[in-house]
């Protein structure tokens, strides 16, 4: 485990019953549980993935979608590098509530350039209420990555997480803030004067 280059914190949010926990279960354990119980508060899972030959540990926090639980969750937005925003493609209401979730995201996320991904879940269901184009447009408007998937049939679940992790890794300063001492130092170049053993840059003659 020593070769893990980074631990990323990813948060899954969205209305109750859109399949957040199922999505997570599919990704981490490649399972689907039709009897997945409703999450209480927050839950989390860990998975280590390979990104361009580097091992990256993902701590994925799954949250409860119920309104009443939302008072608990803001704290878990802290320090998240990626957020997966899930809606149910067979339930228009779950899509309509996305704006609220985005507001919450803006309010509580501490990292400004957090990577957001919109995921339309349950595409296996015949009854579609949100078509792909609507989802794409919405994601574009709010600068989010976008995919549709099904936790039940396993379609695109892996891709969604992969894309998100890639994007996080490619964003400088998002996950490596401690290591990189970023920023040019602006100031007097006073070293120059001393080194040249003369009056220095400012000297008159």
């Amino acid at each position: 485990m020593d070769d893990v280059i980074a631990t990323l914190k990813i948060l899954i949010i969205g209305e109750a019953g859109v399949g957040k926990s199922s999505l997570l279960l599919r990704f981490t354990d490649d399972q689907f549980d039709p009897e997945q119980s409703a999450t209480i508060g927050v839950d989390f899972k860990i998975k280590t993935v390979n990104v361009e030959g580097n091992r990256v540990k993902l701590a994925i926090w799954d949250t409860a979608g119920q309104e009443r639980f939302r008072t608990l969750t803001p704290s878990y937005y802290r320090g998240a590098q990626g957020v997966i925003l899930v809606y149910d493609t067979s339930k228009r209401t779950s899509f309509d509530k996305l704006e609220n979730w985005l507001t919450e995201l803006r309010t509580y996320c501490t990292k400004r350039d957090v990577i957001k991904m919109l995921v339309g879940n349950k595409i296996d269901k015949d009854q579609r209420e949100v078509d792909t184009l609507t989802g794409t447009n919405f994601a574009r408007r709010y600068q989010m990555l976008f995919t549709e998937c099904s936790a039940k049939t396993c379609d695109h679940v892996q891709d969604a997480f992969d894309e998100l992790v890639h994007k996080i890794i490619q964003t400088p300063g998002l996950w490596d803030t401690e290591k990189s001492n970023s920023g040019l130092k602006i100031g007097e170049r006073d070293g120059e004067a001393k080194a040249s053993s003369c009056y220095g840059g400012c000297s008159l003659i």
Binding site: T28, S37, T39, I40, G41, V42, D43, F44, K45, I46, A59, R68, F69, L72
Partner: peptide, 20 residues
């Protein structure tokens, strides 16, 4: 986090948070 990702851990976690 310490409760881990085991079945048991998940249950305890849920129970801990069920106070509200």
């Amino acid at each position: 986090t310490k409760l881990g990702t085991s079945e048991e851990g998940i249950r305890i976690r849920a129970r801990m948070q069920s106070a509200s």
